[in-house]
Amino acid sequence: MSTAFDICWPGGEAAAPPTPLVFASPHSGRLYPDDMNPALDALRIRRSEDAKVDELIDQAPALGAPVIRALTARAYLDVNRDPGELDPRLFREALPAEARALSPRVAAGLGVVARVASGGAEIYDRRLSLEEGLSRIARVHAPYHDALSRLLARARAAHGLAVLIDWHSMPQSAAPGVDFVLGDRFGAACSPALTAAVERLLGEAGYRTARNAPFAGGYTTEHYGRPDRRTHALQVEINRGLYLDEVRLETTAGFGRLRETLGRLIARLAETDWRPLLQS
C-alpha cells in the first residue's frame, strides 16, 4: 500500500464510477516520516493538519464518491501546492531555474515543503538539502496527483464530466462568523451552478457561507478546475470551531452533527444530474 495516499472506492476499484463526483482530502494526513526530524514537538506541528476532515466525509464512498486522502502530513510535503513552489530560505543549494520561489505561498513559508507550521513557528532547526525536497515530491506529491488525475479521467469517461470537491478545514479565527468558505478561483475553476448548489445546501442546513475569501482555492482547485475540459473543481473550507478543539486536536460534541449534515449534503450532490447544470 502507498504511504502517500489511499483511495476509498464506491463498490470497489473495479466498479464503474456511479457518479461524476471525486472527493479529496489533501491535508488530513497524520504520517510523519522518520527522515523529517522536525524541531517542533508533535502537537505543535500537528496543528497544521486539517484534522479529522477525512472522517467528516467518510460516508462519501457509500453514497457514490471515491475519496482520495493524503496519508503523509502536509508539514512534510503539501500535495496542495505546485511542485515548483520551493522556498529558497529552506534549502541549502540554489533552486532549479523553473522553481516558483516568488509565489505568495512560498513567501509565507508554506511552499510544497513547508518551512513554518501553523502559527508561523519554524519547523526545522536546519536547512534541508535540495535532494531531500525533490525526493519528497517524487515519493508523495507525484503519486498522489497521478492517482487523482486517474480518478477524474474515470469520472469523465463514465459521465462526460468530473466534479472534484477538495475538502479542507480552517482555523476559527480565519473567517469570523463564517462556517464554510467555498473557493472556486472566483468562478474560473467550476461552473457557478456547482458553487451555488453547495452554497444552497449548506444554507438550508443553517450554515453561514462565504465565497473565495479568505480562501479562493489552492493548487488542486486551480490545476484541475477546467470547466472547458469537463472538469469542475471546488474547494470547501470547514470552520474547525464546528467540530474540533483546536488546541488539543480532539473532536467536540459538534463533530457528530456536522458529519450527519455533510452526509446529507453528499447524498444530495450524488443524486444530482450534473450534466445539464454544468454543461450549459
Score class of each variant (00 low, 15 high):
Y219D: 02
G160M: 06
R208M: 09
R208C: 12
F215H: 14
D245Q: 02
V178T: 15
R240F: 06
L201A: 08
A158T: 05
H223Q: 11
R208L: 07
E199W: 00
N212P: 04
N239C: 11
T220R: 07
T195F: 01
T231L: 13
G218Q: 06
D166N: 14
A162P: 03
L244A: 07
N239D: 12
G217L: 13
T231F: 10
E246L: 07
S169V: 11
I165V: 14
G183I: 01
I165E: 00
Y224V: 00
V198I: 13
A175W: 15
P227R: 09
S173M: 04
G187S: 10
A196I: 00
G225E: 01
L201D: 05
D166V: 00
C190Q: 13
G177A: 07
V181S: 01
D184V: 03
E204I: 09
R185I: 12
Q172G: 14
L194E: 03
S191Y: 14
R185P: 07
T221N: 08
Y224L: 01
F186R: 15
P192S: 11
G187N: 11
L201G: 02
I238M: 12
A205M: 07
G218M: 06
P214N: 09
G241C: 08
G203H: 08
R200N: 13
A189D: 06
F186M: 09
L164G: 06
D184L: 04
H168C: 10
Y243F: 14
V236N: 00
C190L: 08
A188S: 11
H223D: 04
E199D: 15
A175V: 15
G217W: 09
D245F: 03
R229I: 00
P227F: 10
G206H: 10
A174P: 03
P176F: 07
G177T: 00
E199C: 06
A175M: 08
T221V: 15
G183F: 09
N239T: 00
P171E: 13
F215Q: 12
V181C: 05
Y243Q: 02
G225P: 03
Y243T: 02
H232G: 03
A158R: 11
G203S: 07
A175E: 12
L161Y: 04
A233E: 11
T231V: 14
V178H: 06
